[in-house]
Nucleic acid binder design. Structure first.
Lengths: 158, 158
DNA sequence: GTATTCTCAACTTAAAAAGTTGACAATAAG
DNA sequence: CTTATTGTCAACTTTTTAAGTTGAGAATAC
């Protein structure tokens, strides 16, 4: 890997919506076992536009991973213990797949547009490998887990 | 991970452009050491819209990873041996980072929009881990490597 | 029955990705 | 030195996706 080739910054992988969903779920996990938590409270604590959170929580509720209750003192709670929800689950739920390319999705597998025949695509095997490693990691951490923060400094590249 | 929660399919990670770039580079790698390869030939062989490939190859050329030559019998060739170019290099070049979220990029690190303070973000450590594992894999495979295709069937999920 | 809280489809806005155009620059061959 | 060939590049159009809002409605509690 020679050369100081210039870097760009775009093509973010986890959308805002997915990230909001993760934070909302973390919030619910933190309050698991207590009464329903109101949307407004989550929005405020997690810095998420309330109206948008509406969409996200309804969706999670339709998925059945969150229970909702209307009316006074209503709100949301996890429908499942936080120990039974992995980050992999959440990401698959919100974005359909952990794969970097369509053809490397184990579940939602489909042909990549404008690609070669799959038998001739040399990138696919690598992307499947990446997907599997990613899944392994993301499915190994649960909403109930405490996650240690590492200092994270720019020593390695990328 | 209980429940048959419905899956979606969107938010693809490697853009068309990045995938085209990878295939174009593979093509050049296959013809490394031979004369310059013309854009039209690459476009045809790799099923890439020729005019769009123009943009991509010019870019790669500006990055210095590809050499170009104009005029009759001109074309493109790798400026660097395929053994010295990893898939990680290519992806970083085209999309700036291997990270799933902005705050987990080692190089192009920046704060995620509308997130909590980094010290309070519990997702970050996990995403850094994912980034590192991905980088490890992608930097371990070179354009010169033959990649074995595995049958890849939907046994595990996601 | 009224205040509260979630529901949801439809809509708007904004941004990014994908791809095209066309004038121009370099090179080779005659 | 002229012509055909091939890459360069900024500007543009089109399409798609993400992000967020609106507003009417449904369930619940008091």
């Amino acid at each position: 890997m020679p050369g100081p080739w210039r870097l760009r910054h775009d093509e973010i992988v986890l959308s805002q919506k997915t990230r909001y969903a993760i934070r909302a779920m973390q919030h619910l996990a933190d309050n698991y076992g207590q009464g329903p938590i109101q949307l407004a409270q989550i929005a405020e604590a997690q810095n998420i536009p309330a109206k948008f959170l509406t969409t996200i929580l309804s969706e999670l509720s339709r998925f059945g991973i969150v229970d909702s209750q209307r009316g006074k003192d209503g709100g949301y709670r996890l429908a499942v213990s936080p120990i039974d929800i992995t980050y992999g689950d959440l990401i698959r739920l919100m974005r359909g797949s952990l794969a970097l390319v369509p053809c490397a999705s184990r579940f939602a597998h489909e042909k990549c547009k404008n690609c070669l025949e799959e038998g001739d695509c040399r990138t696919r095997a690598l992307m499947l490998e990446v997907r599997d490693r990613t899944a392994e990691l993301l499915d190994g951490v649960r909403l109930s887990d405490h996650i240690d923060l590492v200092p994270a400094q720019a020593d390695s590249e990328g």
